[in-house]
Simulated scan of single mutants.
Amino acid sequence: MSTATLDWYGCATFRLRTPEGLTVFLDAYLDRVPDAERSGVEVDDVTEADWILVGHSHFDHLWGAERIAVRTGATVVGSYESVRILARLGVPEEQLLAVAGGERLALDATTVVRVLPSLHSCVWSSQPMPPADEVCLGELGLTLQERTAKMQALWAGLGALGDDVRAHLAAADLSERGDGGALVFVLDTSEGSVLFQDSIGCWSGVLGGESPDVAILAVAGRGNRDGEPVQGSTADFVAEQAAALGARRVVPCHHDDWLPGFSRAIDTAPIRAAVERASPGTALVDLGYADGHRLFESPLT
């Protein structure tokens, strides 16, 4: 009997296949620089997709959706900013659905996705990519202008990156206006439900109302709880979200070294330990690249 499978392609990009034959991409960032870890699948390898659900408009989530959509005819669901970018890049309007949170979409006769408003990680923080067990404090109550100034200071240091990375960033430049408003997707399939979060931030009241079987959670960056940087560690924040959701499985994402010199690999061992303490009934399942994980199958390992 067919079963739902989940393939991770690095960063926060996944392919979900349902027993009924539906193919859904969660984000679409597949191409890498030569020195990066590679999943073995790039944008030009994708020939089948029915839907692409994009969590936010940054290049490491959206770039690639325009080519996959044009090649396969897939419908892309994303923020109004993501849709604006994709329309400018030539994706037909009939393949674009703009959402902001609160929408419910039928992907086929058996799979429905609900869209939730979410938050991006605190990329402007002086600790934008801490180790998972590092405690981060402070930076509360900053205005948007203060956060923007901190972000500009961080970007000023990118000139020291290697030629390959700078060329990659130039090619992936979508001229986006920020993250476009982060989204979380909850897919209800014939076998179970899966929540997809591609940046480590949330509205706790929104997330706390969900109870998926599987939660894909971003585990890299300075966490954002209800609009303020998390006071504590990434590991404890992920564990807090896992406990609130009560999912049987948590699948981490955005934790590989997807753009060396710009990103960093995140050790998930402290996250696993924190999840075990906070939510003993939840198993953290750390996927390898493109390994066809059987999403709802027991035992939970």
Rank of each mutant, 00 (worst) to 15 (best):
M1G: 10
S2E: 12
D7L: 13
Y9V: 05
A12Y: 08
R15W: 05
R15T: 00
L16D: 07
T18G: 02
L22A: 02
T23K: 04
T23Y: 02
L26E: 04
D27E: 06
A28C: 11
D31P: 12
V33I: 15
P34M: 12
D35P: 04
S39T: 08
V41G: 05
V41C: 12
D44A: 14
D44T: 09
A49V: 07
D50R: 09
V54Y: 11
G55I: 07
H56T: 00
H56W: 15
S57P: 12
H58K: 06
F59L: 09
H61S: 15
W63A: 14
W63T: 00
G64H: 06
G64V: 11
A65T: 05
A65Q: 05
V70Q: 14
A74N: 10
T75A: 09
V76F: 08
V76C: 08
V76G: 04
S79D: 12
E81C: 04
S82V: 05
S82M: 07
R88I: 00
G90N: 08
E93M: 11
A100Q: 13
E103L: 03
V112R: 12
L116C: 00
L116S: 00
L116I: 00
H120A: 12
H120E: 11
P128K: 05
P131H: 08
D133I: 03
D133Y: 07
D133R: 08
V135P: 01
V135Q: 08
G138W: 09
E139D: 07
T143V: 01
L144W: 04
R147F: 03
A149H: 07
M151L: 15
L154S: 04
W155D: 11
A160Y: 08
D164F: 10
V165E: 10
R166L: 15
R166G: 00
A171Y: 01
A171Q: 14
A172N: 10
L174S: 05
E176F: 05
G180M: 13
L183V: 09
L183D: 11
V184P: 01
V184S: 14
V184E: 09
V184C: 15
V184Y: 03
V186F: 01
V186Q: 14
D188W: 10
S190F: 00
E191S: 08
S193G: 14
L195D: 01
D198E: 11
S199A: 15
I200F: 13
G201E: 13
C202I: 07
W203I: 03
S204G: 02
S204Y: 04
V206Y: 06
L207A: 13
G209E: 10
E210I: 13
V214T: 11
L217C: 08
G221W: 12
G223C: 09
G227R: 12
E228V: 04
V230H: 10
Q231C: 04
G232W: 13
T234N: 07
D236M: 07
F237M: 10
V238L: 05
Q241P: 00
A244K: 13
G246E: 11
R248Y: 02
R248T: 02
P252L: 06
C253N: 14
H255M: 00
W258C: 01
W258E: 02
G261L: 10
S263P: 03
S263N: 06
D267C: 13
T268H: 07
R272H: 13
A273D: 05
R277S: 06
G281D: 15
G281L: 09
A283I: 02
L284Y: 02
L284Q: 14
L284M: 13
D291Y: 01
D291Q: 15
L295T: 01
S298Y: 03
